[in-house]
Design a binder for these strands. Structure first.
Lengths: 351, 351
DNA sequence: GCAACCTTGGAAAGCGCTTTCAAAAGTAGC
DNA sequence: GCTACTTTTGAAAGCGCTTTCCAAGGTTGC
């Protein structure tokens, strides 16, 4: 620990590096072997006589040697880092995915570079550039905004894993956990509770995932022979504020409905507040179900019935898939199915 | 774009690198200068004849050259990356800080390595090790769990910036945005509304920040000459679940109170739900104020009155401080003061 | 005891950049 | 036109590892 070591070496003192950084070469000298041998022991790339192995190990722990990953990267031509592009790093939803991705890749020895695209194509493109410049070995794109063609082109440079969409390309893996079934599940639950006039607050129109939620909603209606009413569908933007606005719009238009399916939980929160402000109670006057099952959704009042899909699992799977891709394996798909977390924001209107 | 370029070089074809990676040497050859010159132009480390500059620039854009940061790091002995340790990457609160930190450092050309310590000393220690092994140039610790002495020791290796606590050390910067004033503000607001029996749901006991919130609460009481009642203080853990539990405990103990100050917003959410379950209304029966002002806090029912402190600013400041430290400057402190976001979870009990 | 072979380990050449050192080229001054 | 500088540029030596290539050391067999 102390800066001034004495009586360390046997012959010439090693050239003292700036901040006491220990190099492989110093280890080699200390152990009385060549650098190559140390390297071989470190990487297990060849057999080394037991006695030398011991000497080197001793030297390593004596000197507290830690191989410099930068040098290693350069020599191996591998950066041991992967990039992750997310839209908003501060979303409660994606945060969880991030945590899982970080954990998975960390364990495999990769460093993770996070960048946020802010739902803007240009920003995202810039992020990709930066990551490539940083020589990441792969990129995980959590709900990318980039056009398909561009993503496909990207796979020619690095393997990519995509969540929330799907492309056809060699070194890529799409984990398009289709939201349609989940949305359908939610809507069917509402129908099962006797609701016929069910409003839908959608997500951003350009977002494929958001489209799927709409489709699920439609499918459930169709299946129950309930005519689709365009006026019961209002646009939102996946935010609390958007949900609030949308609900107000619905109410102002005097739309008739006994239940609402919100494209995500935050939208539901906003909608619930708008309802509350107009003196309408959930679930007595209107039932509402969300999508995503944010951690707080079980703690709001009333606790929200919502479609649950383990985003943590998605993150884990993304990390695994990336590791597979990097190791030249073909990732095996394993999708988790959506379930409905039934809580207290809906009521049956059966008679 | 196409893989097969033809008629590129003048003399011998450059050794085609694996994946069409362009090196500085290739640029040099293309431009008819030496590698040193290209490097100098890239870094502006010396004057170069205008004509050569143009030739090199042309070559660079023709070849789409991007310097390899790994090689650069090795040569310069600087990794151009900084580590950020956060406790839970998926907390809505820290997410925002992360976003700001990422942005600030990104602009300065640094890459950011995020790691989560999960509020566990050991995990955090391991994160530090990993970051050091990765040769980060500095570490930002967002609410660290590590003992002071260890942090001080760490500064001997890399500069660090700390949020939520404070140490005395040379190459460090503590942004201990003391929570005491904010907590006091919240409590005083409640007192100003006529409340005398104010409960406090605390955060994790070992956490300095949590301690500060308690102190602020006590200070406000003392200032108003309201005796401190130990039974009105229950422990929580900064989570929804903890708040829920704590409120139940309070209620079960038949504690008398007309208002609650929760150590953070999530705690408040949980507490509100517990209240709701017992048929107590907010704010009619009990007033509640939180701390942190999470984005959803303005959308829950009723919208939560809470202490607002721009965590985004904290993140920005942390990034700036780190850059200052890395450039050998002494960071200038700039604290943002806490304000109270007054919403609808409290009512006056003045007569 | 020596040829033929397998195992170990060292020397040295990179990886792609930066940076020092010194030579080449340009500029001034007389 | 030649000397004395100053600027511009290239050659080469790293940065700390990995890895190829080859020699030394050991084994085995006859």
């Amino acid at each position: 620990m102390a800066t001034g070591r004495k009586s360390t070496g046997s012959k010439a003192a090693a050239p003292v590096a700036p901040a006491g950084v220990v190099t492989l070469e110093m280890v080699a000298e200390e152990a009385g072997v060549s650098p190559s041998t140390v390297s071989r022991i470190l990487n297990g790339t060849a057999k080394v006589r037991e006695s030398k192995v011991r000497a080197v190990r001793a030297a390593i722990s004596k000197l507290q040697f830690q191989p410099n990953p930068v040098a290693r990267s350069l020599a191996r031509g591998r950066s041991m880092s992967v990039g992750v592009i997310i839209q908003t790093i501060d979303s409660p939803f994606y945060g969880e995915a991030l945590a899982a991705i970080e954990k998975g890749l960390f364990r495999a020895g990769y460093s993770v570079l996070f960048l946020s695209g802010h739902w803007r194509e240009d920003d995202e493109r810039r992020c990709v550039e930066h990551l490539l410049a940083r020589r990441v070995e792969g990129i995980i794109l959590v709900t990318s905004c980039l056009p398909d063609a561009e993503l496909v082109r990207l796979t020619r440079t690095v393997p990519i894993v995509l969540t929330g969409r799907s492309i056809e390309a060699e070194r890529s893996y799409s984990m398009d956990a289709d939201s349609t079934p989940g949305a359908r599940l939610a809507t069917e639950y509402l129908i099962g509770q006797g609701h016929r006039k069910i409003a839908f607050i959608a997500g951003p129109a350009n977002h494929p995932d958001s489209q799927q939620r709409l489709n699920g909603y439609k499918a459930a209606l169709a299946n129950a022979k309930i005519p689709f009413a365009a006026k019961l569908v209002v646009p939102g933007d996946y935010s609390d504020a958007g949900g609030h606005l949308a609900m107000n719009r619905l109410l102002d238009a005097k739309a008739e409905f006994t239940a609402v399916f919100a494209a995500n939980d935050q939208t539901a929160y906003g909608a619930m507040l708008a309802l509350h402000r107009r003196g309408l109670r959930v679930p007595q006057d209107v039932s509402i179900v969300g999508f995503d099952d944010l951690p707080t959704s079980s703690y709001i009042i009333p606790p929200l019935t919502t479609v649950h899909r383990s985003i943590h699992e998605v993150g884990e799977a993304a990390a695994e898939a990336m590791i597979d891709l990097l190791d030249g394996r073909v990732p095996v798909s394993k999708l988790s199915t959506a379930t409905l977390a039934i809580r207290e924001s809906t009521r049956s209107v059966r008679y």
